[in-house]
């Protein structure tokens, strides 16, 4: 009984932490850059494969994850500076930009996924890392899972604190809350948006790298994570970072529990959650106006 409980609890925390990381990235990209980045999951996949490739060349997994950070940032930043900036120049209104940028990110989803398929193929990939287990309260838990748990929770809270405390974080929040006021305060909106897009990519990459430490990966894994991130973001309120943090852990636990009862139902449960949620309270748990 206790073993089950600890299993569910640790799985919930791991999933919740990973979900929180990816959802905060997605939420920030939408809140600041007004892009519902449907290709977010593909960046998770990209991070996972970058990390996997590095590990294959005998780089330590944790170092590999750290190496992903600058790479992912540059990819995200450059994408925003080129495609999305151009797009915002040709879109007449915010509403038009939101709709167009979402469609562009669908296009990006196909591009990234198929480039990955060409590079890495479609087979399951993976490596073993810290397979020993330690006992916590008498129940065994694998070391790699414990490590991922610590990282996931640490990264998600560190990011939250970064937004709350740092200067850049404050600028980001200012733009997401009131773009016109932020401009008056001297915040350069498009630059902040590009940085946010880069940070979102970092978070996706880190999540991908963490996933490689505990799971097998494949090039078509992205879409499911995108959907999960969107569910969490809707759950927590579009653009609300604390909402995503909380929503990530809530969905992680729901997923773990449903998975424990009947694994084939977990995706059904997710989709039901998002559909009911959109109908009942589209503004989300912590969202203000819808």
């Amino acid at each position: 009984m206790l073993t089950t409980l600890i299993n569910v609890l640790s799985s919930g925390l791991i999933m919740g932490g990973v979900y929180a990381i990816i959802s905060m990235g997605l939420s920030m990209q939408y809140g600041v850059a007004r892009i519902l980045n449907v290709s977010h999951g593909e960046f998770i996949m990209l991070g996972a494969f970058l990390c996997f490739t590095l590990v294959r060349s005998h780089v330590h997994p944790i170092l590999s994850m750290l190496l992903c950070v600058p790479v992912m940032f540059v990819i995200g930043f450059v994408l925003h500076r080129t495609i999305y900036k151009k797009l915002s120049d040709v879109s007449g209104s915010t509403a038009a930009f939101e709709s167009n940028s979402m469609l562009v990110s669908f296009g990006l989803m196909f591009v990234v996924q198929n480039v990955a398929l060409l590079l890495w193929g479609s087979e399951q990939k993976g490596y073993t890392f810290l397979m020993r287990s330690v006992k916590i309260l008498g129940s065994p838990i694998a070391l790699n899972r414990l490590l991922v748990l610590v990282f996931a929770v640490a990264i998600s809270f560190a990011f939250y604190i970064f937004l709350e405390r740092s200067r850049l974080g404050k600028a980001i929040r200012a733009v997401s809350q009131d773009p016109s006021a932020a401009r008056l305060l001297g915040v350069r909106r498009t630059r902040v948006a590009a940085i946010c897009f880069g940070i979102g990519a970092i978070l996706a990459g880190c999540a991908g790298a963490l996933i490689t430490m505990i799971n097998q990966i494949n090039t078509s894994m992205g879409m499911n994570y995108t959907i999960i991130a969107i569910i969490v973001v809707v759950l927590g309120g579009m653009g609300s970072i604390p909402g995503s943090l909380l929503g990530g852990f809530i969905l992680g636990f729901i997923g773990t529990v449903v998975n424990y009862i009947d694994p084939s139902l977990s995706l059904v449960a997710y989709y039901l959650i998002i559909i009911v949620l959109l109908l009942v309270k589209p503004s989300g748990l912590m969202g203000g106006k819808s």
Partner: peptide, 17 residues
């Protein structure tokens, strides 16, 4: 198949912009 889907994505982005 991958080239096809890749082209699909690229054309989508280029068309929208």
């Amino acid at each position: 198949p991958y080239v096809y889907m890749l082209a699909f994505g690229v054309i989508m982005i280029v068309s929208i912009i």
